[in-house]
């Protein structure tokens, strides 16, 4: 009786421990976003009025879905148009981001800010990074 209860407890404990592992993996995108993106685009992805473009429902992100990982790693300079407004502040590149990091960040953008509209896969990002413009 007590032994079987002990086993149940142990299994439950393990399940919880594992679950916390998985959630931490799931939060990777959020952590990376916080570290590399949020100081300019802000936690809510709204950017800074007129200066830093928003990431929420961004048509620019959607249009550039196929080179998004390249842009995150190499940065952007010059004027771009986002949701009908022009922005000219340069975005610094992030050479240290791995393909896995880029995948996690882009899927975080998809989940939180609805752009890009579709998730990306690791394979897709790996392929994209080989053909950066």
């Amino acid at each position: 009786m007590s032994v079987s209860r002990l086993i149940v407890a142990a299994v439950l404990f393990l399940a919880f421990a594992m679950a916390s592992c998985f959630t931490e993996r799931g939060d990777e995108g959020e952590l990376l976003y916080g570290r590399h993106c949020a100081s300019c685009h802000l936690e809510n992805g709204e950017g800074l009025r007129g200066v830093i473009p928003p990431l929420v429902n961004s048509d620019y992100v959607e249009k550039n879905r196929d080179i998004l990982a390249c842009l995150l790693r190499k940065g952007i300079s010059g004027t771009i148009t986002v949701n009908g407004k022009q922005y000219n502040q340069a975005m610094p590149g992030n050479q240290q981001l791995t393909e896995a990091d880029l995948t996690n960040i882009i899927n975080y953008l998809h989940k939180e800010f609805k752009s890009p509209k579709q998730r990306v896969s690791f394979g897709e990002i790996r392929e994209q990074m080989r053909n950066c413009p």
Binding site: S39, E46, L48, R49, Q89, A90
Partner: peptide, 16 residues
């Protein structure tokens, strides 16, 4: 400073 890549956008959004 206007080209600040760290905390300035956050500061400016609060100053707004």
């Amino acid at each position: 400073f206007t080209s600040c890549p760290s905390i300035c956008p956050k500061m400016k959004s609060q100053m707004l």
